[in-house]
């Protein structure tokens, strides 16, 4: 059987699996944001970085090899992951206290898991208009982390190509493929896969916010004694 070592534990794998896939199949986790099992890996968030023979690789794209030794849950690696999260937080407007995704957001949950106490860097405070043109969905790209999951879902699953990443460097942003650039002028709908993949509060369904009590949201910590 093929296997590698993750932080000293044996992880079996099927040929062709990436490190992250094998680790998840073994019931373990490596922090990640832009990876989703239904889509081709994107490799943009770098949160899933692990160390093999002293080199950092993205575990969502790196294939598993027999007998290799992978380091993941190490203080210095987690420190770098925390830095990546801090960069994502200051690049956007992440005001969790008023975000409908709070408690169900993967960016936020990753920050808790990695014990991010503050965003550390100076804030960019981007100023992108909120797109509320669609009848049922709201787009706030000030919270977008450019994971491209909506792009991949719309293009590869829905066959609609509603979203795209556009621009270079810090100006890269999510755009809507319509002449007007507005979501309301596309055939985007709540049935689309793309309507359900955003890991943060950038694509939100209207009129359903704040329905889940605090304590019962997906990433709320378990109650003591539970």
């Amino acid at each position: 059987m093929n296997a590698f070592k993750l932080d000293g534990r044996d992880i079996p794998f099927e040929p062709g699996q990436t490190i992250l896939q094998a680790v998840q199949a073994a019931g373990q986790e490596i922090p990640h944001l832009c990876y989703h099992p239904d889509f081709k890996p994107h490799g943009s968030c770098k949160l899933c970085s692990v160390r093999i023979n002293g080199r950092m690789v993205s575990s969502c794209t790196a294939p598993a090899h027999d007998g290799m030794t992978v380091e993941s849950d190490m203080p210095d690696i987690n420190e770098e992951r925390r830095t990546l999260l801090q960069m994502l937080f200051v690049e956007g407007n992440h005001f969790c206290p008023s975000c409908e995704k709070s408690g169900a957001c993967r960016l936020q949950a990753s920050a808790y898991e990695l014990k991010m106490m503050s965003p550390h860097y100076d804030h960019f405070f981007p100023d992108r208009p909120v797109d509320a043109s669609h009848a049922d969905y709201l787009l706030d790209t000030n919270r977008c982390i450019l994971c491209s999951l909506c792009v991949r879902a719309s293009r590869d699953v829905d066959g609609k190509n509603v979203f795209a990443l556009s621009g270079r460097g810090i100006h890269t942003r999510l755009i809507v493929n319509a002449k007007s650039g507005r979501l309301g002028d596309t055939d985007f709908s709540g049935e689309d896969k793309a309507a359900h993949v955003c890991p943060v509060g950038a694509i939100l369904r209207k009129r359903v916010g704040f329905a889940v009590p605090i304590g019962q949201r997906p990433f709320d910590p378990p109650h003591e004694g539970d």
Partner: peptide, 11 residues
């Protein structure tokens, strides 16, 4: 820590 909700006036 990050300006909080009052920093929503920054735009």
């Amino acid at each position: 820590i990050n300006g909080g909700l009052p920093a929503q006036r920054n735009h």
